[in-house]
Amino acid sequence: MNTTARAGRTAALLLSPTFLVLALVVGYPLLAALRESLHRSGDELDESGFIVSGDRFVGLDNYADAVGAARFWTAFANTTVFTLVTVAIEVVLGTAMAVVMHRAMRGRGLVRASILVPWAIPTAVSGLLWRWIFQADGVANTLLGTDLLWTSDGWPAKIAVIVADSWKTAPFVGLLVLAGLQLIPNDVYEAARLDGASAWQQFRRVTLPLVKPALLVAVLFRLLDALRMFDLPFVLVGPQKGAVETLSMLAWNEANQVRYGPAAAYSVILFLYVVVIAFVFVKLLGADLLGERRARRRSEVSA
């Protein structure tokens, strides 16, 4: 149809600047990382005892070494666990926050502003704040009556990271869902109330379906960020701690020891992992996420 073709042209025109910026700033580093991951740098001795310096092409050796290392699999498991647990907590907390922020009540302005603050503090600082709370003679142990070393290693360190990350990032989900809530007209709720729907029913049947698109976008982007988690465990617990080392931290650690090839290999593996997760997520929830269902409904209305 003619209008479709015109819409397509308009779309291409509106999109091209964005494509350009992203391809430049994001595309090049990806290609560079791929290239780097197939090389190894530094001075090494070859078979005949000569010193070889500079980059050497090693094929997939970096990847093979990575997958063969126990440390990699620990980091892989940490990354996965942190992602699943923190995102789940953040969705529940964030949605609850949004509902609270949305409700007309006394002190709403104060509640809204204070809920955003944890997210507004740079991670480097909130990591320290939590390290302080979790230190041996800190507030956490005092309140819980425990004597745990939260920030050294083991499962307390994992919990500390999960608590701090949920605290920090739930407001992000909350804000996105709140924006979705604001788009729901009041008369929808009035109609539901006239029909005698309870608060819970209103939430289940009216609110949740209508904020689902915003919520799913929030979850998707949280997944991507959580899988690449770096600075919070780094500041809160520190590098080279098996309990909290994520794939990003592992890559950083390698790069820090001037092993750029293996670092790039870890990064590319993480990249692929993120790609797979995002792909599965979009495939499973694609209709809601991409708005196909809504687009269909709208065309029915106009037909």
Partner: peptide
Amino acid sequence: FFLSTKMLPIVAAIIPL
């Protein structure tokens, strides 16, 4: 495509950048 630009760990991007 837009989404994919959020998938590379920043650690990997920083040296080229």
